[in-house]
Design a protein around this nucleic acid. Sequence first.
DNA 1: CAATTTTGTTCGCATTACGAACTAATGATG
DNA 2: CATCATTAGTTCGTAATGCGAACAAAATTG
Lengths: 264, 264
Amino acid sequence: MTTGEVLERAGAGEDKDYVQSLVRGLEVIRAFSQYKPRMTLSEVAQHTGLTRAAARRFLLTLVREGYAETDGKLFALRPKVLELGFAYLSSLPMWEVAQPVMRDVVNTLQESCSLSVLDGDDIVYVARVPTARVMTIGLSIGSRLPAFCSSMGRVLLAGLPPAELAVFYDRVRIEKRTPRTVATMVALKEAVENARRQGWALVDQELELGLRSIAVPVRNRRGEVLAALNVSTHEGRSSIEAMRSQFLPVLLDAAQRISAALSQ
Amino acid sequence: MTTGEVLERAGAGEDKDYVQSLVRGLEVIRAFSQYKPRMTLSEVAQHTGLTRAAARRFLLTLVREGYAETDGKLFALRPKVLELGFAYLSSLPMWEVAQPVMRDVVNTLQESCSLSVLDGDDIVYVARVPTARVMTIGLSIGSRLPAFCSSMGRVLLAGLPPAELAVFYDRVRIEKRTPRTVATMVALKEAVENARRQGWALVDQELELGLRSIAVPVRNRRGEVLAALNVSTHEGRSSIEAMRSQFLPVLLDAAQRISAALSQ
DNA sequence: CAATTTTGTTCGCATTACGAACTAATGATG
DNA sequence: CATCATTAGTTCGTAATGCGAACAAAATTG
């Protein structure tokens, strides 16, 4: 063995105060969503890059703690893992209050309504009220979309302190998802600046062809942007003008109601 | 030090293949929901029973991996932890399909509709569509209620294989939550048996005074009970008779639609 | 049904993660 | 407003945890 090469461990573990086993265990949990809901020990090992021995230890630990179950061959997650995600949602003050308000929005507009927050370069859905219609993209709580080409993303970016926004611009890689996706940094900056000025953002088929959405910010009493609220529709169902004249007022009112509820 | 007392570690760690650090780390995540959304290192240590040194390692690891953030003093969870819970939800085949069906139920009945699964002696909410009305209990995805005194619990218990149900009866401790809560094992068994015979369960203020709910099972194509669907209301708003005559048909139809969607 | 591949488990040991001890920060008190 | 007391955060030597190579068992194939 060569002399103490401390930082050889692939990518991870540069830090000192770092619990490798926690990270690996969380990887095992996440492997289930990224691949299949039911996996053998070896499949888990493959999809996490762990040795089979390691995968086994983590799986048995998860089973022992009630986070997973097994029939001896296949492993699957149990509802207890929801408590982990729930730990985050319950820390979001707006969450409980937003749900009924969003239901009202859906009832009024007959289109899906979502609430999201910014995490790195992505928006993350934290609440969602779907319509009965079958949607093109299957989105639910916890799923991510690139911030730069979604309506909620534009609104959330516009609410960032200038310094953080600058960091985002340095880091972000514009990837054309449709022919309509914003193509240049200049255009993106212009779109975000526009969202800031007008207090809302409309994105037309930049994420997926046929998908149109409009978003507004949800602010705390100090005016900081905490989340974004949006309504999405299909290109053939609502015109851009209709979204501005009909959807926008409903959304602004809903965001106002959520903000108001936060401030008591 | 005394001679190799292997099983001295409080409660845990009896097993061999057991990754202590994963369990501890998950405890840290969960500490945030059970206590406050923002905590100092020491508070986390207190609420998990870890030493401050250990709490620090886990918190720094979570921050490093994007599951938490800190301003140097306070720690808070980040949206990334949702991906963990999401790993479970995406493994539930019914989840996506249930949401719009549930929205229809809420629109028709103007009462909250929920979907839950059984985990041990509890039911765990996996989807929920609230009404605009303010509810007495703040329930959301991931939260738990005792199975024995909730309508969904009765339906889920009724769907258990006899052997597993017997184990449940041996284990369960009947705790009176209201004066109306079922008081004896005999009465509980009778209620579960009744739910099995009639294919639904109505529970009147056994969980909380004023709270009434009715539930039906969601089955896969083989007839196994996968989940329970319910509608809950307030005692003063809907009579028991109204729930039977109006709510029940809507619920049965909804459960049927979800089951049908699973079977393609 | 032997050979081969794949999956699951054991076990000695190196590394990890442990927590006692230390230091720094905060708050109380005369 | 120094001093002490208490609480919070960090360091570091070391024991035990968790590691994975090696082994065994099961499944697959020729």
